[in-house]
Design a protein around this nucleic acid. Structure first.
Length: 275
DNA sequence: AGAATAACCCGAACGC
DNA sequence: TGCGTTCGGGTTATTC
């Protein structure tokens, strides 16, 4: 499932493609369920005859800047993908196809149909939108400090695993990197967030950054069907220490890794070395 | 108000 | 082979 490193990998890949400044001629909807703040007609009027100028990322959101100053956001949720294909190629689960003036198309593909696409008239409206405004600090933001985290955690009665998944605190951590970060920090996922110390907050930040940087180098983690482009997968799954290793031995102490659900999320951890 | 849970969705994996 | 059931996962809405 795409988290910050996987979205980063995708955005890097997209920024190396050749569709910039090429006119979008036509939009085909296979299923418009992904449109959250516009109708099909509004979306077509908004996008057609424009070009893509730049692509960036905020947390797990992908931001497309168009030639008219307008903005499209895409959130991949669980299974969303963006492909750049020849006009006559077909992806497996296309929902929206953007046909360009070069006989190619950009496809939003999503077997689960969980992803979201929103449009904004300008950058300020994006920043003021409910989906972006509430986001917390991004993993590599200088403003993500131990004191910031401690302050966010101090009244949280939730388990730390749940709190790490809260996008209003750190924007970009998902289930894989939450489990991996807690393992590296030797913190039990069951600990209450308010009981995490300042020093541990710093460790969470350091280890989260370390592991995400490694993942980005390896073009993300491929589990389930993640790929950042058609037939391009990441390889960071080879380096995961707990996620997906239920019942295997802990790489640090050798005891058997446990698996449980914490607020509905699968959680893998080492009972012996995570306190 | 804060926290837990249900709902969204459907392919894949599993059970019979 | 084929049908039915279960599961998962990010986020929001709903319930507790």
């Amino acid at each position: 499932m795409p988290e910050f490193p996987e979205v980063k990998t995708l955005v890097n890949w997209l920024n190396h493609q050749d569709f910039f400044s090429i006119k979008i001629n036509k939009i085909i909807f296979i299923d418009a369920i992904v449109l959250k703040n516009s109708t099909k007609k509004q979306f077509i009027d908004f996008v057609c005859n424009e070009t893509i100028k730049k692509i960036s990322q905020i947390g797990k959101f992908i931001i497309f800047y168009l030639s008219n100053g307008k903005i499209i956001t895409i959130h991949l949720r669980l299974e969303g993908k963006i492909f750049y294909l020849s006009a006559n190629e077909k992806s497996k689960f296309p929902l929206v196809e953007f046909y360009l003036d070069n006989d190619k198309k950009i496809v939003y593909d999503d077997s689960r149909k969980f992803g979201t696409i929103n449009i904004y008239d300008n950058y300020q409206k994006l920043l003021d939108s409910s989906e972006i405004k509430k986001l917390g600090k991004q993993p590599f933001d200088q403003a993500l400090t131990a004191n910031y985290l401690l302050n966010c955690f101090k009244n949280k009665n939730q388990k730390i695993k749940t709190t790490l998944l809260d996008q209003t605190i750190i924007a970009g951590i998902g289930n894989i990197y939450a489990d991996e970060t807690l393992f590296l920090c030797k913190i039990s996922p069951f600990r209450k967030a308010k009981d995490v110390s300042l020093d541990e907050c710093q460790q969470i930040i350091n280890n989260c950054r370390k592991i995400m940087a490694q993942s980005i180098k390896n073009k993300g983690t491929t589990v389930f069907s993640y790929q950042y482009a058609l037939n391009h997968s990441g390889s960071f799954q080879k380096y995961l220490k707990v996620y997906g290793r239920k019942n295997l031995s802990c790489l640090r102490c050798g005891s058997t890794l446990c698996w449980t659900k914490i607020n509905g999320r699968g959680t893998t951890y080492c009972k012996k070395c995570q306190k």
